[in-house]
Amino acid sequence: MNKLIPLALCSAATAAPAGVAQLEVTVQIPRLHVAEYHQPYLAVWLESPDRSRLQNLAVWYDVNLKNNEGTEWLKDLRQWWRRLGRELQMPADGVSGATRAPGEHTLTFTAGHPALLDLPPGEYRLIVEAAREVGGRELLEVTFQWPADQVRQLRAQGSRELGAINVRINP
């Protein structure tokens, strides 16, 4: 199988040169003490208020199963599946990657990144959805203006399947 590394990872934690707009998302996956733990499937995407514009940022799923079998549970990310997933061929270049362990994971998108290219200025929701096999599901969102007029820091706090989501937007 094609092993794809999300572009976001390649640029993770690199500081953008001054004056270059940047979107940085930090996703906290909580450590859960449950009898049977599987790392969550997780999707991060952008949508305009009327959903006329939808943009995948990352999809983490079980990419290592034979015959692409990990795609069987992608539908459990049900809002993502409805908005974007069901139209997307997986694995998706620059978007999909393996599931992540509990901890903090940062995705950085600098202006010029394919995900931000042609993104018309305006209001967007950044949505993080997580679904765990034999576990639960949680969806968090933050609303922001793109591009930002000044550095913006936004935060949403999960309660079960997600920890804190921190979004930093550099103008």
Partner: peptide, 8 residues
């Protein structure tokens, strides 16, 4: 009623 993956 809603399925993903290959040949579900």
């Amino acid at each position: 009623t809603v399925l993903s993956g290959e040949d579900p």
